[in-house]
């Protein structure tokens, strides 16, 4: 994979930061802002999924359930136990991390497709439990009344730019964390396990431990996003566990391009916006998205991110051509 040169990357980082600073001032309309908040949170979920799916090659389909469970932990902690806000987010992250570790330890006894099937079944179990335990979870309606977050006595207002900024910060922190992780020895080891397990194990890498760690690491910011999502919407809802949300976020990972981190983030933002633009089409929009997914996988197997890379390479080649 060709990485852009350092000055180019610096420039890109500056542009992204400027955009991030400008965004809360530019996007002020209620509907648009709501859309951006969702896009940013989904970007966190998708890029963290990329860690397990893209880098580690684990067919973990419980990822979106981590997002949903965190919302419920947050809701239950604040509504029933009056846990102060922020603390509930930390609790949600902790609970989900443990859950991710246990799920991983069990599911990773299996291989490939079996992992996908068992984790899918796990999601189904979560939904069934949540809908059945109405006294605690509010059943199919969801658990309503999650309090707004507050900072130094200032309530984060859903109408102001507060949540947008929070979502931005979360995405930036998550991205820095993920990029650091995938370039560390740990990141290299999970890729090695994905590409040639026998060789990696022979070199002393513990397959199960690294994979369980990857699952846990991918669940941290996902859980934080899930908790913020519940605060933002004031509700923890079982809809989060639906097949369609998993499909949507999975398509973000694959359309963006697996094992890139940036790809899924871009795709998350693009897809959320496109989905919203197509809202007028009703159910037809999902048919359009389905077709788009298949076409992208057919003609751009590396995802949108690879398109950018291809362009970079093309440009570099043409420059060299002129220079020669």
């Amino acid at each position: 994979m060709s990485l852009p040169s350092t000055p180019l990357r610096l420039a890109a980082a500056v542009v992204v930061l400027l955009l991030a600073i400008l965004l809360p001032f530019v996007v002020t309309g209620g509907a648009a802002k709501n859309l951006v908040v969702l896009a940013l949170l989904f970007a966190v979920v998708a890029s963290n999924w990329d860690l397990t799916l893209g880098y580690a090659g684990i067919f973990n389909f419980a990822h979106v359930a981590f997002f949903g469970i965190a919302g419920y932990v947050s809701a239950i902690a604040t509504i029933y136990f009056g846990l102060p806000v922020w603390l509930d987010i930390a609790l949600a992250v902790a609970v989900v991390a443990v859950l991710a570790g246990v799920t991983a330890a069990l599911a990773l006894r299996l291989r490939g497709i079996y992992v996908a099937l068992v984790t899918f079944a796990f999601v189904q179990l979560c939904v069934a439990l949540i809908i059945s335990q109405k006294w605690l979870t509010g059943g199919a309606v969801g658990l309503v009344g999650v309090p707004d977050l507050a900072l130094f006595g200032h309530r984060l207002s859903p109408s102001g730019p507060d949540y947008l900024i929070l979502a931005e910060l979360l995405l930036i922190a998550s991205t820095v964390f993920l990029r650091f992780l995938v370039r560390s020895d740990f990141g290299l080891s999970i890729v090695a396990l994905r590409d040639n397990e026998a060789y990696a194990v022979a070199r002393g890498i513990s397959a199960t431990r690294q994979r369980v760690l990857a699952m846990v690491a991918s669940s941290l910011f996902t859980a934080a996003a899930g908790a913020v999502y519940a605060h933002y919407l004031i509700v923890a809802s079982p809809d989060v566990f639906s097949f369609s949300l998993t499909t949507l976020i999975l398509s973000m990972v694959l359309l963006g391009g697996g094992a890139t981190i940036y790809g899924p983030i871009m795709a998350a933002i693009a897809l959320t916006v496109v989905t919203e633009q197509l809202a007028g089409f009703g159910v037809v929009r999902f048919m359009i998205i389905a077709v788009l997914i298949v076409l992208t996988l057919r003609f751009l197997p590396g995802g949108l991110w690879s398109l950018g890379e291809r362009l970079t390479v093309l440009r570099r080649n043409s420059k060299q051509g002129i220079g020669a």
């Binding site: 999975l250 077709v291 997914i293 298949v294």
Partner: peptide
């Protein structure tokens, strides 16, 4: 992924 998209369609 493609069959998930097919199901969605």
């Amino acid at each position: 992924m493609t069959t998930v998209a097919g199901a969605m369609f």
